[in-house]
Structures are given as structure tokens and as C-alpha cells.
Design a protein around this nucleic acid. Structure first.
Lengths: 265, 265
DNA sequence: CGGAGTCTTTCAGCCAGTGAAAAGCCGGAT
DNA sequence: ATCCGGCTTTTCACTGGCTGAAAGACTCCG
């Protein structure tokens, strides 16, 4: 569970296939065969064979130049991930509302291990620049969504985060475990989190927890605004309202929007 | 090479792994082991083993009840698909604008084989109900986006679609190849497509092509509105403007929004 | 023309993956 | 309490798909 990256190209065929997929990163979305082999640690011949199968199925595609990239077919299957698009679908209307009212950056994220994974993001064209990316990861202890998710994570997770070195992104990042612990308690008490200049100095984010049907915290929503003059106190109700809306949509759940049978595949 | 689909759960390990992934569908997003085995055509013991590997990597997850579902990790990788989230990211701001101006359903889709795959969708809460789903598929000949993509598809694709029976969804669906051919010519001439009540009788959609850097049609945007009183002629410029915006963002491409190095993974 | 890089294909050996069957593990019915 | 049926997990020899290395093909340059 811990140190897996090293033996990535294990011996099992499955692990090789997965290593091939893992070779793709945000700044390497298309790879030649040799790059693919190198990055995945799979031998050239094998990479060639496995990749061919993946292409045939549609998990990978080849562009005009013959370079490999992640295929649409894989994306289609991945769209079925309950914590990915499933969550997103339920949340989208509320994120829309939030965006329309504020015209600021709206983010939806879940926790995966010791990191935040961004599931959706609406970026105003002239809102503060944020460098998050849908499908991207970030540390738990700095962002608004991260603080929310961390504050509501199992004790074991919290301890593990608090026990490891906390990277500072700006001078305002809370990198002291003791202080962070206090911050987390505050987040739980208030029901929302504020990250003021802790990721980039000019951005402030207000995050709120999205509860699942069983009461656990399944995700977090946040609004990221320019730090100067921002009033977290007045943003929080907005964000929390959106979070509650998503919660309702997740649990009670307005019946599935699309009657089955009409949708193919 | 030709008729491979038949031996889907073929003998190769890779094909089995892919068959496992393929077992998940929009109306079966979580499966027990036996369901997984049955649907994928993989023997129970094998399904158990492969699934375990997939879970370890994060391609699948198990919920509290032990049922399998598509994992967030797979979704993260799939988010790198250029024709999936890559396209979406470039298009989102323009789709936002379109939504904000009209408050109608906005859709972004690409062609995959002989079908449309919806890549993004913004649904107004009180806009016409549409039963599309992000990651979902639909026939090419009925929807606004579909007509656009079909009209600009390689001749071989067009012939194949025109040659096979065209399902009628309403009495207005153009299911006659000869008429459809005329419609497609019109779409190419005008630069946009109108699907009036051809999918559901009360919805009208106006689609426009998104050109890639090389001039080919990479995707299509559409606006879906209530059919009565809709004025395709006045909607088209809006949709086409959005399409051109996306084109610009795709090709010239404002430099990547996020400086590399800050983003993890 | 030749060399350096890539991609593709071949070959025989071997070990990971295989099915079948047995062993646990529930929860509901008797 | 006991049995039963369905599910998941594990074991065990066998076998055939996967393997690396190396040769062949292709492409792009100087």
C-alpha cells in the first residue's frame, strides 16, 4: 500500500497493463511506443503487444503520428466511477448555481488516500487563476476542500497526514501539526473551512463538506476567490447551501434523470 | 484481426481485464463478484484474481458491502484522454458562456465509430429534459451534434451509417437515407445542424462543428431547447461562436492554464 | 548511401495464469 | 438449533499465453 511505485512493472500481466496506463500524466498525454515502454518499465516488445491490445479495445488510441494516448473508450468506462462522474452529475447543477451567483472558481473534490482529487471545477475566465485540474491531485492540508476532507477523515488518515512533513506553499500555509490540529477542530465546529493564502498568496478558498446518505463526508465543495477583501463569513453560507443541495441530490436522489433503456451502452 | 469481438473474453489476460471493466454499465455501476464474472464471461476464480489486482491498483474499488465499482484511480487516468477531459477543459469556458446566456442545455460531443459520445453536458434545471449522460452514447443521425459529426465524417463512415437501418425515435426522425443525405449536405452548407423533434418530439437542438487545428472536425457543440417557438436561425450564431471559440482554444491554444510542476501526478 | 533512431515480428522456453473443486462464510428458511 | 443455497475465498497440478532477446523493417536525417 505504501511504497508501490517502485515495483510497478511487476510480473503479472495485469500490472503491466496498468503500468502502461499509469505512464500517462498531465504533461505527457501522448507517448511514442518507446516512451511508453520506458515510463512504464515494461520491455519494448511487451509494451508493443499489450498496447496493441489496449488500442484494439479502445483503452488507448494512436494519433496520426502513431503516438499513443488515452482512449475515449476508457474514459467512457471511467465515467461510471461513482466517485467520479457519478458524484459530478449529482453536483453539477449546484455548482452551476454557485458559479452563476459568484462568477468565481467552483471546485468539487474527494479524498483519495492522503490527497485531494478534484472531480469538477468551474473556472471563471477572470476569476483568480487556480492551477487545479479535473482529475488532478493535491495535498490535503492546504486547500479549502482539502481541509474539509481532512477534518472529516478517519482518525488514522488524519494522524498519518499530521505525522508526515507538511509542505508549505506560501508563508501562510499551516505546516505545523499542532496548529493544523486546531484548524481542523475549528473546521469541524464551524462546518466549513477557510484556506486564506495557503496555496497561493492571492487566493482564498471556502470549502464545505458534502455528506453521503450514510452521514459520512463523501466530498467537498469550495469557492476560490481573490484574497484581498474576501469575506469568508459571507461566502460560507453559499458554499454550505450548495453542499447541502448536493447531499440531498445524492441521498434522497431525485430519481435518475435518464430512464434506462434510452441510453445506449 | 477482423472478427475479434466474438471471442471477447478471449484467452489473453488483457482481454479478460478489459472484459471486467466492460462489465460495468450505466445501470450497473456496482457489481458483486459473481455478477462481474457472469457479465464479463470470465470464470469466477479468475475474475476474483484479476479484480483483486485491479482493486489494489485502484482501477476498481469495493464498497462497504464488498461490491465492486469503477475506481477513482481509473477515472484519473482516463481524465487524460485528449478527446475526453482534454477537449472538455478547452471547451468548458465557452460552454459556460453559452449556458449563462441561454440557460438551456448545452452539449459537447465527439464521434466514436458510428455513434456520438457525449463529453460534456450542462443541463439547466428547468430546461427541456434531455436523457443524455456524460460518457453516454447515441446514434449519429438524430441529434444536433450527431448530424454535425456525421456530415463531416469520412465518406466511409457516412456510407456505413446511411447503409444501415436508421432507427426512428419520433415521427420526425429522418430515417430515410436519401433524405438524410440531403440533410447532411445542408448541414455542411450552413455550417450548423438543426434537429427538430427528431429525438424527442418536444426538443430542438442546434449543433455546430468544432474544428481541430488541422481543420478536421473534432467535436460538436449543441444547444437543446424546447421545440415550440424555438428559432434555430437565431440560436445558430451563438452556437457557432462558441464552437469557434473552442477551436481557437484548441489550436492556437492559450498556453496551458496550469504551469507544470505545481500539479502533482 | 549509410547510420541512428524507431517500430514490428519471430522464436523456443518457462512460469504466470488457468479451471475445477473444495473449503469458508454468510443469511434465510425450516 | 440445523440445514440449505448462494456467495466469496483458497488450494492444486497442468498448460498455453506471455516472455526477452535478437533479427528484420521502416523512417528520418546528414
Amino acid at each position: 500500500m505504501t511504497r508501490r511505485a517502485e515495483r510497478d512493472a511487476g510480473t503479472s500481466v495485469t500490472s503491466k497493463v496498468l503500468a502502461l496506463l499509469e505512464a500517462f500524466t498531465p504533461d505527457a498525454t501522448d507517448l511514442s511506443l518507446s516512451e511508453l515502454a520506458r515510463r512504464s518499465g515494461v520491455s519494448l516488445a511487451t509494451a508493443h503487444r499489450r498496447a496493441a491490445e489496449l488500442v484494439e479495445w479502445g483503452a488507448l488510441e494512436r494519433d496520426a503520428a502513431g503516438r499513443y494516448r488515452v482512449g475515449l473508450r476508457l474514459w467512457e468506462v471511467a465515467a461510471l466511477a461513482p466517485r467520479g462522474l457519478g458524484l459530478r452529475d449529482a453536483a453539477m447543477p449546484f455548482l452551476e448555481d454557485l458559479y452563476e451567483v459568484t462568477h468565481e472558481n467552483v471546485q468539487l473534490a474527494v479524498r483519495e488516500g492522503l490527497e485531494v482529487v478534484f472531480v469538477e471545477r468551474i473556472a471563471g475566465r477572470d476569476a483568480v487563476p487556480v492551477w487545479t485540474r479535473v482529475g488532478g491531485r493535491f495535498a490535503l492540508h492546504a486547500t479549502g476542500v482539502g481541509l474539509v476532507l481532512l477534518a472529516n477523515a478517519p482518525a488514522a488518515v488524519q494522524e498519518e497526514v499530521l505525522g508526515s512533513p507538511l509542505q508549505s506553499y506560501t508563508e501562510k500555509t499551516v505546516s505545523d501539526p499542532v496548529r493544523l490540529r486546531r484548524v481542523l477542530a475549528e473546521v469541524r465546529k464551524l462546518g466549513y473551512a477557510v484556506s486564506d493564502g495557503q496555496v497561493t498568496i492571492d487566493a482564498l478558498s471556502v470549502g464545505a463538506p458534502v455528506h453521503a446518505a450514510d452521514g459520512s463526508v463523501a466530498a467537498a465543495v469550495s469557492l476560490v476567490v481573490r484574497a484581498d477583501g474576501a469575506q469568508p463569513g459571507s461566502l460560507a453560507p453559499l458554499v454550505m447551501a450548495a453542499a447541502r443541495g448536493i447531499h440531498r441530490s445524492l441521498s434522497g436522489g431525485a430519481t435518475r434523470v435518464f430512464p434506462s433503456g434510452r441510453i445506449r451502452r
